[in-house]
Amino acid sequence: MSTRPTAVPARGRLIRAGVLALGLTYVAILLLAPIVGIVWTALKGGPHVVSDTLAQADVRHAFFLTGIIAAVTVGVTAVLGMVVALVLARDRFFGKRIVSAIVDLPFAVSPVIVGLAAVVLFGRGGWFEAFFAARGIQVIFALPSMILVTIFICIPFVIREVVPVLEELGTEEEDAARTLGASPMQAFIRITLPNMRWALLYGVALSTARALGEIGAVLIVSGAIQGQTETATLYVLRALEERQDAAGYLVALTLAAVSVLVLLGIEVFKRRQAKEMGR
């Protein structure tokens, strides 16, 4: 029995236990301890802190604004992200590698730089300032620029999830549908879209989480005007600066809780996708 090739000798088992313990300790100290810290700090004030904070008009408006920005961002990056993914997976043209690098750029560029770029484009003396001012559209210190910078930051997620799935799928099923008389639109909606739905949803979940938590770029372009252009993350920042620690921690905890729900969604999508890819 013990001559089984995969049998691990006692010393090997000890090393495995050591490796496992090391990895788990790292995760516990780095990831889990801070979570315990914030839950304890946010809730130690008692239940009335929760109701007081969530009743504040500023807090409600901040969550509302964050919701709008996230919804628009996710819609735009999902629809246009699918187009880019189709082009990257199926097309060949001069400069495709540069396009691919451009898609990855938002992963690496600091959000602060993104905010600054929006100021250069739309701010005082900016490239497009006169154009929008003439039409009475306020871009900077208003919702449009806040949405634009969030879209920039969320662009890669859907694309990077969908491209490998499209490459793996190939075009046989689509070709069959087209041969049988389906229009391009029908083939896309009936064949391509269902085939890539889990990857798409995974990308959307990552995008949502990122959009909900965005701060650097939004902080610069919004001006963080209390009750007007203040998102949930900006509210947390102000609350901590004004020493309203309880309210700040609680809103931060709420954001984290929503994000964790999104994460669980991500996990479900990922399993489904892995299952479908593996069939």
């Binding site: 947390v236 931060a252 964790v260 994460l263």
Partner: peptide, 9 residues
């Protein structure tokens, strides 16, 4: 988790 938790948080 770090993919989901906002960096500010």
């Amino acid at each position: 988790l770090p993919f989901a938790v906002p960096t500010l948080v």
